[in-house]
Amino acid sequence: MTARDNARVAVPPEPGEAAPVRLPPIQVRTGAGEVAAFLRETGGIGTGDFVPLTFPFRWLTLPAIRGSILRLSGGEGFLPVHEAQSFAYERSLRADADYILDVEIQSTEKPPRLILKMTVSTVQDEICARLETILRIVRLNPETPA
């Protein structure tokens, strides 16, 4: 088993919980222009191949991941609200480099939440970072007055 395989060993769901949804691996790139734009808007410091700690979060908005989040959130009439976030880095990311994402999404009913676990690895299969994102699912009330 590779390091990535070990990282992807699923924790069994709690009784009454659905099995986690595991997405196919996704290749991403830390484009230097995207990193620089991200830094400008987040008050970040750093130059050269520096990639901000929170930059990988943006990959959760990729269509394959976003679609799964919206589907598991309940679709129209529900919105995910960010409740907690963690990062664990084994090595820094570098700008203009390719990485592989492994994503697993666990949904819970009580309370309604999505727990996303993402592992970022190099294309040589070395794990760089692990992220955990907890989203609370909020039911919208369109009747709320302005």
């Binding site: 808007e41 943006r58 908005t61 919105l79 995910p80 609200v81 919208l140 369109p142 709320t144 302005a146």
Partner: peptide, 22 residues
């Protein structure tokens, strides 16, 4: 930030969506 991060959740951008979320 929505543009550079890709996080265009209407909660952050649309006052009506924010109101509907309380």
């Amino acid at each position: 930030y929505a543009i550079v991060s890709g996080d265009d959740n209407p909660l952050h951008l649309d006052p009506a969506a924010a109101r509907a979320a309380g």
